[in-house]
Structures are given as C-alpha cells and as structure tokens.
Write a protein that binds this DNA or RNA. Structure first.
Length: 287
DNA sequence: ACCCAGGATGTAA
DNA sequence: TTACATCATGGG
C-alpha cells in the first residue's frame, strides 16, 4: 500500500471520524467510540484506507488515488469560508473556534444509506453497533497489516440477510426498511454513486424512493456520501438549534426550513450544519 | 416504570 | 396539505 503524508491545519481526524457523522470508520484495534488506537480504517471501492494523524501531519495508506483519499477525509474542502460566514453573518464565534477542526467525510453511499436508515430514533453509539454487527455478520473481513478489518457487505452480500436476521441484530422495525432497500438496489441494479451526477432535488427524490428514507435520512446520505454540501439534515438537534439561534429561518415544515437554511446559513450549508450540530451536542451551543 | 433517541410511514381529518 | 399514532430496542 502506498503511504502519503498530508500537511494540514485545523483538522482533527479522530474528532472527524468519531463525531457521529460517519459509521463507516473503525479503530484498527477496537471500537470507534472507545479510547484506543489512533489509527483508523475504512473501505473505499473495495480497498482498505488507513489514516493516522500526528500533529499537523496526516498519514494515509491505501491503493487509492490521492484525489480519492483526500476527498474521503474531506481534505479538499474550503472550510474557512464557512467558518468566516458563520462568524460574520451569524456571530457564531464560539462554534467556529471550537469546532473548526471538524472535517466533512465522504463515505461509500451504500453503507452510509443503510447506517442512516438504521439511525431513526436511535442514539449514535447504538447505530454504530448495528453497523458493526451487520459488517461482522454479513461482510467479508480482510487481514491488513496483521489486523483483521471488518468490511460492510455489498448489496449482494446483504441480500443474504433476512428481516429476522436483522431484527436479531437489534434493528427493530428498521429491519424491514433495510431488507426492502437492499432488494430494490439489487433488483433494479441501482448504482447509488450515479446519484452524484444529478441535481440536488432530483437525487433527493430518488433516495426517498427507498423504504425508510425520508427527508432527513436522504439529506444525510447526500451530505456524507454524495458530495451535496447543500443538503441540510434537520434532525432533533438541528431543529433545536434553528429554533434557538435562527428563529427567522424557521418555517414550520422540513422542506421550507431546510430551504431557508440552504439559502442563508453559509456557502456550504451542510458543513455549517455540522458545526452547529456538534456544538449543540457537546453543550457549546445553547438549546 | 417512564422517557427518549441524527425519523419514517400509514391513516385520518 | 397537516396531525397523529405506531413502529423496536436499549440506556438513562
């Protein structure tokens, strides 16, 4: 595997990968949300990607192109313009100071979709546990550098899972959503990656065709795996933040409020929403 | 026992 | 269009 070193500023890889935006990453030696190895891995296009940070250096190992590696961990984006916009237009200094080291990830669309279908009415650590259990049970693990790395199943592999299998993993009523979504992908030969070439509204409409995917889940998949930084997932935290800090953008419905945020929050509304979400969750922003 | 979680769906008004 | 009950499960 090829090793690369990237010089970065205002980037915290551990925080970026453990903050709850992605469930597709793992610590090399254990569980993501527990203290442990500072090496992280995921699989992209079937290939392992290993990432480690040492101060202002990020060391990556993979057989992927440099462009793909950078996009996967969000090194290619202009965060500064969003931070500046929040500071200048919304006076959110505290948020931008404490959370400007957060990057936006770009996950594989399929694992991302399934994880966010599982996310409804769930706490983040439990979503991660479901993700890992699905990966362990139905995916093909791979030994890399002496570590057995778990890998989320492909749509074909996950087709082996029955609704009862998934209920046994604790998915509850979401098991049916996952089974039907996997069926639809396989039967219609859908490539989720192709949604990236569509306009935001159209890509979102396509995603909502999947059972168990509504406005919020669709926006998460668009933001965290398909490069749509205009997607603004309105979850319980974001709604509280809007009510408290952006009441003038609150419009009653998801559609209208999200539209207001897209037009007024920042150049990349999805990135700004990430800052606000994590500030609120960490108690750095009143709710 | 009770409440809630990075919500979505089906049904009724 | 909008309002509301329902959907599993585990952790506080």
């Amino acid at each position: 595997m090829q090793e690369r070193v990237f010089e970065v500023q205002n980037t915290n890889i551990e925080k970026t990968l453990t903050c709850g935006q992605t469930f597709s990453w793992h610590r090399m030696d254990g569980k993501l949300f527990e203290e442990g190895d500072s090496k992280f891995y995921t699989f992209k296009r079937g290939k392992p990607l290993i990432v480690e940070q040492s101060g202002d250096e990020i060391i990556t190992k993979s057989e992927l192109s440099e462009k793909v590696v950078k996009k996967t961990i969000g090194l290619h984006r202009d965060y500064e313009q969003n931070i500046k916009y929040l500071r200048d237009n919304h006076e959110k200094d505290l948020v931008t100071e404490k959370h400007q080291d957060l990057n936006l990830v770009k996950d594989e669309p399929f694992p991302c979709l399934i994880s966010y279908i599982c996310s409804s009415q769930m706490r983040i650590p439990r979503i991660k546990r479901m993700f890992d259990d699905i990966a362990t049970t139905f995916g093909e693990s791979q030994v890399v550098e002496g570590n057995r790395l778990i890998r989320f199943p492909t749509p074909e592999q996950l087709a082996e899972a029955s609704e009862q299998d998934l209920r046994d993993l604790g998915l509850g009523y979401r098991a049916e959503y996952v089974v039907q979504t996997v069926q639809k992908i396989n039967e219609e030969g859908i490539s989720l990656r192709d949604l990236e070439s569509l306009e935001y509204e159209e890509a979102k409409r396509e995603l909502k065709e999947f059972h168990g995917v509504g406005d919020k889940v669709a926006d998460c998949v668009l933001l965290f795996s398909l490069d749509f930084t205009e997607a603004v997932p309105l979850d319980t935290w974001a709604k509280k933040v809007v009510a408290k800090h952006f009441p003038e953008l609150e419009a009653g419905t998801y559609q209208k409020t999200a539209q207001n945020l897209r037009e007024n929050l920042a150049p990349d509304p999805g990135i700004a929403q990430e800052y606000l979400f994590h500030a609120a969750r960490n108690g750095d922003l009143e709710t």
